[in-house]
Design a protein around this nucleic acid. Structure first.
Lengths: 209, 209
DNA sequence: ATTGGACGTTACCGACCGGTAACAACAGCG
DNA sequence: CGCTGTTGTTACCGGTCGGTAACGTCCAAT
């Protein structure tokens, strides 16, 4: 009952690089990997640091040697999540750098698939819902990143020839965020389908066909 | 520091009836009223029963005489929130019973104003995000109510002459849910404005003009 | 006036949580 | 080899939380 979940999630947390041999990744990386999963699945307030350390195959003391507090660990997890999103965006950009409109609908498709796969929504948005302390460091970070994401999506919509790029970008954001939260609260079958259909219809309406 | 917040929220929690004289409403009603506010503002896991009882001008023991557990109280609060939504819907229906399309855009307007006013989103959806236990009684309730709300909105869209009533209803739901959560995570100025503009444009596209 | 039921008050319980101290084991590296 | 920095282990602290027991108080109905 003690070490049954140790080396299970021995992923390399830096990206997709293989960790040579049977060598475990460094404790810090395992901690943020485990914390990301558990925070996402059970909520930030629903997971204790001890459980995180155990799931990461280490212990609480080591965790606190790398992160000054649970709140710092939370912020680091959000950073990690956002970085992953950045990587996905960069991949899309590279694949469709010549055709912004194709980039945009590829983005919609990807997000739709993500909504289909994961039933616990956007970690950033969930954090905003769950972390209510106004001065929590995670709040500032979330706002920054959501804003940054918005200007990028707006730029893409503009590049795709949208009539009102900002309005289209915001509408798409609303739809996506709504699809993710609707997935959690039930009451709608296949929100990702509805998201994709409406989003693509919207792109068609704003950016010609 | 002890009884400074006692008789402050002495609202009659049954609706709009005036409570005659200076008579306080019953403890049970004050408890759910206080709990609703605090859960909404600070999250379900972020508020303790003792704080709720104190804010309601009573004490923990009385709270547990009315509610078997904190989880039961949570469900009761969700029930109360939903009942309030029902009342608002009924009022709209009565005012626009002859014109479903007017009813629909009035609904959009009302929700837009709500998004503008309240910065902590939909209590039902927040609960779905925050309460991660799969077997929590609140989960079942949320799913039921969201589903019920959906069939009603779909019926309204159909009555308003929408081409694809279900798709329109779901799209509006996505937009609304997205607007509410976007209000919390920042990154967008005036989500309610964007919600109203896109929603009305959508109604126009689906239900003629 | 008596009674019964709802409410208030205090104290308490066990469990958990975030965070820390102290010390042992272990690596790599000169 | 010895040294240094990272990790593992255990035990502990204060605080908070959900929930309960026991008893006192008040009011309303009979």
């Amino acid at each position: 009952m003690s070490e049954d979940s140790a080396a299970v999630l021995d992923r390399s947390a830096t990206g997709g690089e293989a960790c040579a041999g049977g060598a475990r990744s460094k404790p810090r990386d395992r901690i943020v990997a485990a914390a990301r999963d558990m925070f996402h699945a059970q909520g930030f307030r629903g997971v204790g640091v001890e459980a995180i350390a155990e799931a990461a195959g280490t212990n609480k003391m080591t965790l606190y040697r790398h992160f000054g507090s649970k709140d710092e660990l939370i912020v680091e997890c959000l950073r990690s999540v956002f970085a992953e999103g950045e990587a996905l965006w960069a991949a899309l950009e590279e694949r469709h750098h010549a055709d912004p409109r194709a980039h945009l609908v590829a983005w919609v498709r990807e997000k739709a698939e993500y909504v289909l796969t994961d039933c616990r929504g956007c970690t950033l948005a969930n954090a905003a819902v769950e972390i209510t302390e106004a001065d929590h460091p995670a709040r500032r970070y979330i706002e920054e990143r959501k804003a940054a994401y918005r200007v990028r999506l707006t730029a893409l919509c503009a590049a795709a020839g949208a009539a009102q790029a900002e309005l289209l970008a915001d509408a798409l954001s609303l739809l996506l965020e709504g699809a993710r939260v609707s997935r959690q609260s039930g009451g709608m079958d296949d929100p990702h389908t509805k998201f994709m259909r409406t989003a693509e219809a919207m792109i068609g309406a704003f950016a010609g066909r």
